[in-house]
Amino acid sequence: MNAIAEPLYREAPSAAPALSATHLDWLESEAIHIMREVAAECANPALLFSGGKDSIVLLRLAEKAFRPGRFPFPLLHIDTEHNFPEVIEFRDRRAAELGEQLIVRSLDDSIARGRIRLRSPDESRNRYQSITLLDAITEFGFDACFGGARRDEEKARAKERIFSFRDPFGQWDPKNQRPELWSLYNTRVHPGEHMRVFPISNWTELDVWQYIERERLAVPSIYFAHEREVIARPGGLMPTSHLVQPRPGEHSEHRTVRFRTVGDMTCTAPVESPATTVAQIIAETATSRITERGATRMDDQTSEASMELRKKEGYF
C-alpha cells in the first residue's frame, strides 16, 4: 500500500445540528422494523458485513433493533483477498467491539478448491464473489442475508424488492419478483432457496452519510481524504498497489483522494477530494454531479447492465 500512515479509523467529529433529521428517523425506524421481521420469521439469517459504510449503518440499525440482546444472526464477509487492508482491519475491530460472531469466507479458498477458476491471475475477482457467497449460504444453510444495497445506487437495484427472493441456484429473476405491499413482507422460502433483505433500500448516499454523522459512526480511514499513489486512467483514478501497476505509457502519481465506495483494489477508484471530515463529505455528496458507483466502480462501467447481470448470478 502506498497510502500515507493514517489512523486506522476515525470517530466522526461532534455532529453539527442535524439537518432534516426527521426523514432519518423514518428511514431508521423502517429498517429496524424490517430487521425485526427477519429475526422473527426467518430461521437462520446472516448479515453481510464488508466494512463499508452501508454495512456499518446496518450494524448500528441491528444494535437499535436487538440490544440489549445479542444479534440473532452472525456477520458474514466474503473476502476477495483484494480488499483494502484498512477496511479488513476495521471489519475485524468492529465485529470484536460489538462482540458478535464474524464468519469470513475467502475467494482464495474457493480458488484453491477449484470452485472458482480465474481466466488470468490478475483478473478482477469482483463477480466471482457470488460463487463464494452462494457456497457460504449453502454451507451454513442461511435462509436470509441482510445486505446494505440501496435502490438509488444503480438502475437494476431501483427495481429490486426489499425482500428479494433467490431461487435454489441463488439467482435473481427481475421479471418475476413478488409484489411487495405496505410493510407486509412475504419472507417465506422453500429449503435451498433464500432471501436477500435490504433494510436501507430507501436510503440515498446522502442519507447514509447524514446518519453516520448523526450516530457518530466510525468508518474506515480511506473514506477520508488522504495522499495516495494513483494511476490516471480514462475511467477514473486507479489506486496503485501490488495488484495494479502502471502499464507502459502510464505513470503512478500522488493525489489527494478519498473513496466513495470500498470494494476491490482492482476495480474501486478513488475521487479527488479534500474532505477530511464527515461534515465535509456530506457537503461534497450534496453537490456531487456524479453517482457514487459511476465515479468509483470500474465493474459497473463494462456495460449498461453489468449490475443486473451480476445480480442475476447471485451477486449482493
Binding site: R151, D152, K155, K159, K175, Q177, N202
Partner: peptide, 28 residues
C-alpha cells in the same frame, strides 16, 4: 428504464423507485 428487457422493448416492466430531494423535502 432499468432492466435489459425494458431497454430492448422500450417498456417498463416493474415498479421502480426513484429518489430525489430538494431543500424542502425528500421524495420517493
Amino acid at each position: 428504464d432499468g432492466l435489459i428487457a425494458e431497454r430492448e422493448q422500450g417498456i417498463t416492466i416493474d415498479v421502480a423507485y426513484r429518489y430525489f430531494a430538494t431543500a424542502r423535502r425528500k421524495f420517493i
